[in-house]
Amino acid sequence: MIHPMVPEVRRIKRVYRENHNTVTLAVEAAEAAGPACLPGQFNMLYAFGVGEVPISLSGDPAEPGVQHHTIRDVGAVTRALTRLKRGDSVGVRGPFGSAWPIASCRGRDVVLIAGGIGIAPLRPAIYALLRERERYGEIALLYGARAREDLLFGEEMELWRGKYGVQARVTVDSAKWDWKGNVGVVTALLPRVRFDPAHAVAMICGPEVMMRFSVLELKNLGMEDRNIHVTLERNMKCAVGFCGHCQYGPTFICKDGPVFSFDRVRSIFGVREL
């Protein structure tokens, strides 16, 4: 038996530069026998000689033979990963973790709320929803970033808006004179989209404080806890439940998360330093 912390070496098929500090690595996927990935899951990526970090899958889960990872350069390992080129090798373990509840969205409205790089783990959910667009009601995407230059997937957002009727709304925390769009927190966009809170599913991914306020606003609109889904993040070393780092109260984020329905974490969500 191979130790589950031993990565497989895989080749990078393509590199997409997304903005000034973020790239998407398209990495060849494991053999056909390997596990398919679900929207919301993550891989552990190893940069030779530097280290290993958890990175959410950001591509279309239905696309065979490739897995996409959108990575922002924030530390030593992510810096090394964002400097890799097509044809380079990267160590991969995964996919790990829980998934967005796509099946439970059928016949309902869907609200997606993303903050910063949090748009990346939500993109596979968007692909999955748009693949069978007719099965779902309204789809609203609220996306907040620090500034215009930090925005991701701008061209695709136009496609989702135009071809699939997604109510995509973007806001930034701060802007210069040439920005004609929204400025402010992402929750301020909620009144500007149509959805039926009583029959909607919400998926939220972003900083904890942004998720806390998003949950609060959704509940004020009448959404039930079990229909709100959040992703959580903690330090993670092993992704297989051995290292203990990613504990969040009674859960291990690597195996019970990263996607949680809010009723599962409600009692601990507001506890500081948990």
Partner: peptide, 26 residues
């Protein structure tokens, strides 16, 4: 108590790397 961390070690040539698992504490 079972928590652990990992450490990556490389040599000066940059051609060899090792991953070690070490006992860690919350």
């Amino acid at each position: 108590c079972f928590c652990s961390t990992v450490e990556d070690v490389t040599d000066i040539s940059g051609d060899h790397a090792e991953r070690w698992q070490k006992q860690d504490s919350c």
